[in-house]
């Protein structure tokens, strides 16, 4: 046997899942969704949860819907489902650009969008997407359901504001306006490996100048975040090389302390420039 012993629970309804989690969370019980991070950690016995709450058979947890201008992603929606066809317009295009960078295909058929958010890896493509687009994350417990903005959900390395007894029951990504341009760039040392850096940008061009820019950077700090200085540097300007350069420099200027500041600066400016160029 690879993992240490645990008690296994297989709830069929969200109410049952939340009730079991409330009971086992204080005993280091853990939720099992795609299992592409938790199961390897258990195989190496870095994680030894006493209880596993397997949510894969909970009715409705695999639902992926567009409703009220939002893409609603259930907790068992796999990475592979989030391709270009998952959402209309620019959001679908963006998902189609980002998703192939997540590990490898046989991981993407099992791993989940919501699981990536709950895992909060600093190099997670979906965490970057969630903060870039101001996703809302719904957490349910015996106390009710609350909706958490992505930026307040991701606290730092592998740390979220989810309470131990809260189940992430849905993530909601806003659709992008029809004139939104989207760009994504990631650098990793090997295909499918964790990102050294990644940048996600979206903006529109209205009246010849940049409007509603969002520029988010991930992989370099403890969590991905929007770079307000970079967005301010480009808004209202003609989208040319000079404007892109200002945004890239502003993003690099705003970086917190990193292990190798010169290298981090190069990665940040290059990623932002290439993501902006890809969106142009």
């Amino acid at each position: 046997m690879k993992p240490a012993a645990f008690e296994y629970h297989m709830p069929r309804t969200v109410e049952e899942a939340v009730a079991i989690l409330a009971r086992v969370a204080p005993l280091d019980g853990r939720v099992l969704a795609g299992g592409q991070t938790l199961v390897p950690a258990m195989a190496l016995r870095l994680a030894r949860p006493s209880h596993l709450v397997d949510i894969n058979r909970v009715a409705g947890f695999d639902r992926l819907d567009v409703r009220d201008g939002m893409l609603e992603i259930g907790p068992c929606v796999r990475h592979a489902a989030l391709d270009r066809s998952a959402a209309p317009g620019p959001l679908g295009r963006l998902l189609g650009l980002v998703q192939p960078h997540i590990a490898h295909h046989p991981i993407r058929t099992r791993g989940t969008f919501c699981g990536s958010l709950a895992n909060a890896d600093a190099a997670s493509e979906w965490c970057l997407t969630a903060v870039a687009l101001d996703a809302r994350i719904e957490a349910r417990s015996g106390r009710g359901t609350r909706s958490i903005p992505a930026d307040a959900f991701l606290l730092g390395y592998m740390t979220t504001s989810l309470e131990p007894d809260e189940l992430l029951v849905r993530a909601r990504l806003p659709l992008l306006p029809d004139d939104a341009r989207v760009g994504f760039y990631e650098y990793a040392r090997r295909a499918g490996d964790f990102a050294q850096v990644m940048a996600l940008v979206t903006y529109a061009v209205r009246g010849g100048v940049v409007a509603a820019p969002r520029i988010a950077l991930g992989g370099l700090e403890s969590r991905p975040r929007r770079m307000a200085g970079a967005e301010a540097a480009i808004v209202g300007r003609v989208p040319d090389a000079l404007a892109f350069r200002s945004a890239a420099d502003a993003a690099a200027d705003a970086l917190g302390p990193t292990e190798d500041p010169d290298y981090a600066r190069t990665l940040a400016t290059t990623a932002v420039l290439r993501a902006l160029a890809a969106a142009a």
């Binding site: 390897p40 397997d54 592979a80 295909h105 058929t109």
Partner: peptide
Amino acid sequence: GACTILLDGRAVRACLLLAV
């Protein structure tokens, strides 16, 4: 990737799934 199998026709890692 050595343990890759098809689950309902889709490639997955057999080492990252529980038999149950």
